[in-house]
Nucleic acid binder design. Sequence first.
DNA 1: AAAAAAG
Length: 487
Amino acid sequence: MTTFAELGVDQDIVDALAARGIIDAFPIQEQTIPLGLPGQDIIGQAKTGTGKTFGFGIPVVQRLGLNPEPGVKALIVVPTRELAVQVYEDMDMLTSNRSTSVVAIYGGKAYEGQIDQLKAGAQIVVGTPGRLIDLNNQRLLDLSNAAEVVLDEADKMLDLGFLADIEKIFQKVPAVRHTQLFSATMPGPIVTLARRFMSNPIHMRANDPDEGLTQANIRHLVYRAHALDKDEVIARILQAEGRGKTVVFTRTKRAAQKLVDELGDRGFNAAAVHGDMSQEARERSMAAFKAGKRDVLIATDVAARGIDVNDVTHVINHTIPDDEKTYLHRAGRTGRAGRTGIAVTFVDWDDLHKWALINRALEFGQPEPVETYSSSPHLYEDLDIPAGTKGRIVTAPKAQKSDAPKRDGGGKGEGEPRRRRRRGSGSDAGSGSTDAPTRTEDAPREGDGSGTHDGGGKEHHDGKPAPRRRRRRRGPRGPREGAAGTA
DNA sequence: AAAAAAG
């Protein structure tokens, strides 16, 4: 492990991190900070929950001093409002020992406070595209000196739904700038597209390519959901002892609302977050979930990316995600910063094909041997969670489809991260190699490239073992007995 | 097709 000080991080930032118990840098940080500090353009790719935010954020903060121009000097663009708040908080923490001020610019909120902070001289702006462009159009946000530009969840930002806005934003920032793109997933075509906005970017991957993209410390369980009362099963999982916080993902806003109402009727402590809610209600839900006042969060994919709540033990896909990228990001809400987690997915009858695609893309290798508790999902005929099995979801071998011998540690302990060949359909497959930074070829770029950079992902940990929540959860309809411990 | 993101 390398300390942040050894990476060239300024003492005041080292101190700010230390105040939060953060001393050692994660691999993606070791890789990108030394490159970002001198202004190298970076495409930073690392698994969920491994510290990307500081990977870009620290260089951004330290490079501000190199920019003599007034006004906003750095722009960090993210796909959701909640992520804007979170990244804002991280940047605010990093700058807590210096005068640099940070502002979050996103929709659904009053303009006034945001405008005031801009006028007061905010130097780092973290925001979502719509409001950023809105304020820029109103000449209330000048981006012409923002020589540090970051796209967090970069592949999402360059996706069709956001691309036009991102192109607009890139037209407003200096042509000579430092550009950093970070995400856990970076499909090849997106990397190609990304080069257009960068100058001689280096594609850094913190993970071993043989290892695939899934987190070794997340256990994946997949169940067919036909003839299954999903709400009932979810309720049972939520009653499990040893369960910490849980995020349940649905495909639609309506389904999320319906489920949170249903669980509320059953007496669960659930909160929802989706786009049909007021921003105020969304933030209330997130705050309550983070604070532990609510221990179940029912969400649409608005919460699939980046959101960092450090004691989420379970992610439940009430509805299967659309693609393998979304699967990875959703599952990545647990198992962060070295902790373990469980991802449960229900596959409806009509979604078997979707599951097959995800299974193949992520190389879960259903037919392969199961080596450890780690990342090997299996599709079962049905779900069988014995009533007394709190906290430990037992896989039902009877229905196992695999014909390969199964060696399984049972769900516990530090399984050796299993190595898989990865090749082919993995959407995340980047073009880079793992242990060595891969230099992507130069590509024509609009503008120029002197670049500022910064990069990072948000997830960090304090290096301490996961504080296991052993709150005993008692189901609304009566506690169930069982073994405890999710990990 | 859904969700997200300006109001």
